[in-house]
Design a protein around this nucleic acid. Structure first.
Lengths: 103, 103
DNA sequence: GTCTTATTTGGCTATTTCGCCAAATAGATG
DNA sequence: CATCTATTTGGCGAAATAGCCAAATAAGAC
């Protein structure tokens, strides 16, 4: 059956949470396991508040979950499938050939 | 090895091409096979020029390829893995539970 | 209790993205 | 050739997103 518009909207919200270089960099880093906000800030190299907003967006989209332990808050991927997701993305990221136009 | 910033940027461009409800709806429809622009316009229900720009963006991101036959231009998915991609997205699209905040 | 330290939130400007309209283009048809 | 049909492109205002700063919050340490 064809996807409904509301299904596409829900899915798009999740995809959007990964469709930003800094957010994707964060998600990729978390493939190796959880990290605290301050480590992710260092990774991304942006203002702490900026990173925090990215994390919050990814969390509310269902991509990340977090947990407080001691002084820090640790984020991790909500789902183990991100590797597969990225493998598919890489199949569409050809080093070179991309159609500029038809015909 | 960790993903580099430029790798994440390339990937993010592909993901961005799918991170919009109308564009995702188009991609989902193309799971069942190619369609011409006018069919996709009807599906999306936006102005023809709007749909054309979405298609062009997806094409230059490497998500779609197109081909002209007769009067029409037919678009199809560049890669067969989109189904897997969406299955992963759906795992992160829980009907209900989503972390509002930590702790 | 006060003082830190880690993180989030509010507010603001700058940038990007979206969607329509109108005009341009490409190619089939007569 | 002129004309029609399908699609793309240019341009512009409106809306959404990004990133910084400053202020607020939460919880552990003292």
């Amino acid at each position: 059956m064809p996807a409904s518009r509301t299904t596409s909207e829900k899915r798009a919200q999740v995809i959007k949470a990964l469709a930003h270089p800094s957010r994707l960099l964060i998600a990729e880093a978390l493939l190796d396991g959880e990290q605290c906000v301050c480590d992710l800030q260092e990774l991304v190299g942006a203002d702490m508040s900026t990173v925090s907003k990215h994390l919050s967006l990814m969390r509310s989209a269902g991509v990340l979950v977090c947990e407080k332990r001691g002084l820090n808050i640790y984020y991790r991927l909500a789902c183990g499938c991100l590797g597969d997701f990225l493998r598919c993305v890489d199949q569409m990221t050809p080093a070179r050939p991309r159609q500029k136009s038809c015909c």
